[in-house]
Each structure stands twice: as C-alpha cells, then as structure tokens.
Computed example of a mutant assay.
Amino acid sequence: MAQITALGKNPNLNVLLGNLSELVELHLDGVNISAHGAQWCQAISSSLPKLRVLSLSTCNLSGPFDSSLLKLHSLSVIRIENNNLSTQVPEFFSNFTNLTSLRLSSSGLYGTFPEKIFQVPTLQTIDLSGNSQLQGSLPEFPKNASLQSLVLNGANFSGQLLPNSIGNLKRLSKIDISTCNFTGPIPRSMGDLTQLLTGQINSPHWENLTNLVNLDMRHNLLDGTIPPSLFSLPVLQKLQLANNQFSGQLLGFATISVLDTLDLSSNHLEGPIPMSIFNLRELKILSLPSNNFSSSFPLNRLQQLKNLSALDLSYNRLLFKK
C-alpha cells in the first residue's frame, strides 16, 4: 500500500498502522485521534519507516512533538494544522533533510521558532499563521534556497524583516506577514532583494522578484516610500500594504501589470494619486482610504477600469471632478 486516507473517529494508531510498513503517505485529516505527543509520534515513527507525507490536520492532537519522528528519514511533507498542540516547535525539525513543506498553522504553538528550520535547503513552503504566541525572527537564508511560500500572518514574529540573504530566495512567489510585528527601516545598501519586505522598501531590486504573485504586508510598522517598480512585477496580482507607516508620494509607474488588488489604506501617503493607476486594466479592488492624498481626482477615468468591483477613496483630501 502506498498511501492511506482515512475518515472516522478515534482510531487506535498502533492497530491502524501496525502492518503498513510500506506506507509513504498518511492522510488522516479530520479524524479525531485525540492523542498526546508521545503516543501519536511514536506510533507513526515505529510503524511507517518509509513515510514521506504526514498530514494530520484537525485531529485533536496535543503536544509535545516527540524526537522519535527523526526515524522518518524520508519525511518531506508535514501538515499538522488546526490542532491544540500547546507546545514549542523543536529544533530537530531542521534535521529532516528532505523537508519541502511545513504547515503548522493555528495549532497553539508558543516559544521561539528555531531559525535553523528556515534554513533547510529543500524547504519550499512554510506556514506558521494563526499562532499568536509563537515568536521568532527570520535568519540568513542559504544559497540555492528553495523557499517559494512564506506565511507568518498572525504569528508574533518581529524585528528586522528580511536579512541580506533574501536575494537567495529566487523562487519566492508568496509572502504573507500581515499582523506581525516587523519594523523598519533597514540599510538601503543591501544586495539583490534585501529590501523585499522590510522597513524602507524603496529599493531598486524589486524588479528581480519575477515570480511574486501575492505580497501581503498589512498591519506592521513598515515605513518609507513605496517603490514604483512594485507595480511592474510581471505576475503580481495582489499588493496589500495597508495599516503601515508608508509615507511620501505614490509616484507614477510603468503599467505592464496583471494587478487585481491594490490596498494601500491607512498609511501616510500624500500628494496626487498617479494617473498610471487607471492603466491597471485587471484591477478589481482599489482601496486607498485614510491617507493624505490630495489634488483632483478624475472620476470619468474610472471607466477605464472595466473589472473594478470595489473602490474606497474615503478619508483623504481629494477634489473630485468629472
């Protein structure tokens, strides 16, 4: 048997897995296992030596993680979301040399997240969202890093957002760090991509992020100006920078863009709204309230945004004209 997907209630893992030593994928999401850390970890590690995929979301599991999991030398995917683990994340997760996906969202994690886990060269996806007591910061990333998706929203990460080595994340396509505690600024002298999501993001290196699809940095303390090159990223669809401290004018930009969501609300942006916004032909959501935008705004040009479904320009100092 190559994999097992089970639906049911309160299975005895030792009985269920006892004769399945060839299993490489285990999906028990939604099954009420109701076991503490040593029980479920040891049952799996002793029975499934070839396991590559472990998916136990919403299983009523508790912690802590047991080191017996290290027996699973081929483990690549760990998905243990929406549980009540109430534990810390052990540093031994960084010893899974084949790890590609680590999803631990909304599982009651606390303490400091080990930086070494971010540095696993094969890691492509990490989701720690919804763990409000989980603290941490981002480390130096290794060369040839594989990270594609970084989701930390609602976790208590803080400090310098991205290190100098962010330029090593050439495959990065999704970043969600909303409702964290990152602050800025950082030095502008950093190399390629180093200003991706931190402090002052007015860097010329944004144009290198050619795989970025979704950039969500809402509810932080990021400041400085917003670089025009953001609007020209070839596959960027959602740009969400609301509830920060960005200031200065929003400059005109080239409009080779597939952007469908632009949310810059609740910042300190000022001056006129650039007319190049009307060339964002895929735009569905335009949200610019609670800034200091001024000057006139040509309502008639909104007709150019054929796909627009939500518009918010409230609490600015705009003069509307036909």
Rank of each mutant, 00 (worst) to 15 (best):
M190R: 11
R317K: 15
L26I: 06
L26M: 05
F157R: 05
N84D: 13
S62G: 10
L69Q: 00
F96Y: 04
I4R: 08
K143E: 13
N307H: 13
S173W: 11
P185C: 09
L85E: 01
T255S: 14
S94F: 04
P114S: 06
V24W: 04
T58A: 15
M1W: 07
I4P: 00
I80V: 14
R188K: 14
S165F: 06
N292A: 12
H27N: 15
R281S: 11
D263A: 09
V89F: 02
G159E: 08
C41P: 00
S189E: 13
N153C: 12
F253N: 00
Q237Y: 10
L283E: 04
D192E: 14
N211L: 15
F182R: 03
D29I: 05
L28P: 04
R218H: 13
N181Q: 15
L288K: 00
V77H: 10
P272H: 07
S62Y: 06
S46Y: 06
T194V: 08
K284F: 06
T225N: 13
I201S: 06
L280G: 00
Q240M: 14
P90Q: 04
N211T: 10
L48Q: 04
E282W: 08
A6G: 05
N307V: 03
W40L: 04
S74D: 14
L172G: 05
N84Y: 11
L230F: 08
N168S: 09
F65N: 00
L286W: 03
D312K: 08
K322T: 10
S34G: 06
G199P: 05
L70Y: 00
C59G: 06
L75G: 04
K238V: 14
K71T: 05
I166M: 15
R218A: 15
T261A: 11
S105Q: 15
L302D: 00
F253Y: 07
D216A: 12
L56E: 01
K9R: 12
Q39C: 04
L150M: 13
Y315T: 11
R218I: 08
L269N: 00
L54A: 02
N12M: 03
I80P: 02
N214R: 12
G167M: 07
L215D: 04
L17S: 01
N244T: 09
S76L: 03
C41S: 09
G63Q: 01
T179F: 14
F293Y: 07
T122K: 10
F93R: 02
L150I: 13
L251M: 13
S67R: 07
L299P: 01
L197Q: 05
G184Q: 02
N164W: 01
M190F: 14
T225S: 14
D29L: 02
L172S: 02
F246I: 07
K322F: 05
K306T: 05
M1K: 11
R301T: 02
Q237E: 15
K238R: 15
N83T: 07
S76Y: 02
S86E: 10
M190L: 13
L318I: 09
E270A: 14
T210F: 09
S137V: 13
Q245S: 15
I80T: 01
A6V: 12
I273W: 03
E25S: 14
T179V: 13
D260L: 06
L221T: 12
F246V: 07
